[in-house]
């Protein structure tokens, strides 16, 4: 099948901006965000998975991070970062899951010298923490909650 791409953002306004560019380049896409009805979401996913002309799916990180099977896509682009890396991983797993036969590429687009550098560092810390003590409840909780120290780090630096 054709190479298809899922594009994630946590802001629907960012998806709006992206739609404008896709229209300019005449690239066919579907969209999935929390404001849509269940029927509209189903239709968007089905058309993305089956229509060869539709090569891009614009998804909000929150609406599209669990359950959906979108192995028609083998390319994932994240337009912005989420401080908890597991949320991003769940989003990427829409394409990288059982049934996928092609290698999946993931691109994270970040802007240098902004708070995003620190979000990347924070993600790395969370990954290390989960990896070092997998299965322990207290660590599990601290890995999924943004602490005061985390916030201080994000906005003020170390």
């Amino acid at each position: 099948g054709p190479i298809k791409t899922i594009i994630f953002s946590q802001w629907t306004r960012m998806l709006d901006l992206f739609e404008y560019s896709l229209n300019q380049y005449c690239i066919q896409y579907r969209r999935l965000d929390g404001s849509m009805s269940l029927a509209a979401r189903d239709r968007a996913v089905r058309e993305f998975n089956t229509d060869p002309e539709v090569t891009v799916m614009l998804m909000s990180l929150k609406a599209g991070n669990l359950g959906l099977n979108m192995v028609a896509a083998c390319h994932v682009i994240l337009l912005d970062l989420w401080w908890n890396p597991t949320t991003e991983d769940q989003a990427i797993d829409r394409a990288h899951r059982i049934g996928q036969t092609r290698p999946v590429t993931v691109s994270r687009i970040t802007i240098k010298d902004t708070v995003e550098d620190r979000i990347l560092a924070l993600q790395e810390e969370k990954r290390k923490m989960v990896a070092s003590a997998f299965g322990e409840d207290r660590v599990g909780v601290s890995a999924t909650r943004l602490t005061a120290d985390d916030l201080r780090y994000l906005f003020l630096g170390s």
Binding site: P2, I3, T5, I7, M14, L17, F18, S21, Y25, I27, T55, V56, H75, I77, L79, D80, S107, I109, I111
Partner: peptide
């Protein structure tokens, strides 16, 4: 925005190789 430009470049490069 620079992010949209970067994402479109990735998208279009895949489209060409396709």
């Amino acid at each position: 925005s620079s992010k949209i430009k970067a994402a479109l470049e990735i998208l279009l490069s895949h489209r060409e190789s396709n």
